[in-house]
């Protein structure tokens, strides 16, 4: 087996202790379910001095009700979210997306916070140290060239989380703890369209809660995912849609988000602008598909091709809109 790099493990009992560790140690990685981090550690993509194992913090687990939101603790497992009757009822898009992450054992380990914070992926990056060294590394780690867009200085590694696009359609935000205290950030402002920076989370910060507005409760939702093997694979293209029609059959609310086709999950707000207040027609579906395809900019970061991934985005948008709005 590929060996692990050496590090010290820190196991805080509560959030404030976790934040203390975060403030104290610079070269540190946060471990929740470990299904992303451990593989990346073995590949020497990270060689931290410390690993902050937050699994033992009880406060960060489970689903709670607040004034205007439902709050999901960052350590809540994907299995729990996908099977929770309450979530299935009021936020079906999230339950569906969580239920399509990898396979059952990874969903048992993997957490919602970890899934949001997935590292971006590229087949020139998710490789062993020997492999990466053999082709002189890449921009994202240890090198200064991009194999996907040679000559470029921008990292195209694809964001490959399933739950983030679902949460974007629900207008979710996240609560972040840091040495200064707490802050809340809209999820759409969390992500950055850059395969290296990925998101706005400082090295001394952790996500503690995911907040979903009550206003989004009861929206119909679909999550559609293209992958080679339904048994385990990451998405190669994914579409989350939440919305509803009014009594007259006009679109009252609609929100479409894409994943795995850009360095960040992204809302296609133009589709919302186009459809709200209208009855869905074939023409509007066609226009929506075009808008989604234009937003999707998959690069040669996976074994599936760019045109096919973009094609699947279109297929999913069409299917999803028809399921929700017709």
């Amino acid at each position: 087996m590929i060996t692990m790099p050496q590090f010290r493990v820190l196991q805080p009992e509560n959030v404030s202790q976790a934040v203390e560790f975060l403030a104290k140690h610079k070269n540190l990685r946060v471990l929740a379910g470990g299904s992303d981090l451990v593989v990346n550690l073995r590949n020497k993509l990270f060689t931290p001095e410390y690993v902050l194992d937050i699994k033992g913090i009880k406060d960060l687990q489970g689903i709670k009700e607040n004034q205007d939101h439902f709050s999901i603790g960052t350590l809540t497992t994907l299995t729990e979210i996908s099977q929770n009757p309450f979530i299935k009822e009021i936020y079906p898009v999230l339950a569906k997306a969580a239920g399509l992450v990898a396979g059952p054992n990874i969903r048992n380990m993997g957490t919602i916070g970890g899934n949001i914070c997935l590292d971006t992926r590229c087949y020139w990056y998710n490789q062993s140290y020997f492999w990466r060294k053999s082709c002189n590394f890449c921009l994202k780690k240890d090198g200064d060239i991009c194999h996907v867009a040679p000559g470029g200085k921008y990292c195209w590694a694809a964001y490959s989380g399933d739950t983030a696009p679902a949460l974007l359609t629900l207008d979710a935000s996240i609560k972040i703890a840091n040495p200064k205290g707490e802050k809340t950030l809209a999820l759409k402002d969390f992500f950055v369209m850059d395969g290296i920076k990925k998101y706005n989370l400082e090295s001394n910060e952790i996500i503690t809660e995911i907040l979903i507005p009550k206003a989004s409760a009861g929206l119909q939702g679909v999550y559609k995912k293209f992958r080679i093997r339904d048994s385990v694979d990451y998405p190669l293209a994914g579409v989350a849609i939440a919305g509803k029609v009014d009594k007259e059959g006009n679109c009252q609310k609609i929100s479409v988000a894409l994943t795995a086709v850009n360095p960040a999950p992204v809302l296609v707000t133009e589709i919302t602008d186009l459809l709200v207040g209208k009855k869905l027609t074939d023409d509007l579906v066609e226009k929506s598909v075009e808008l989604a395809r234009k937003t999707a900019k998959p690069m040669k970061t996976t074994l599936s091709t760019m045109p096919y991934r973009r094609h699947m985005i279109g297929v999913f948008v069409k299917q999803g809109l028809e399921e929700i709005l017709k």
Partner: peptide
């Protein structure tokens, strides 16, 4: 992960 042998679901 990237060499796609089918799994039980397939």
């Amino acid at each position: 992960l990237e060499y796609k042998s089918p799994g039980a679901i397939e």
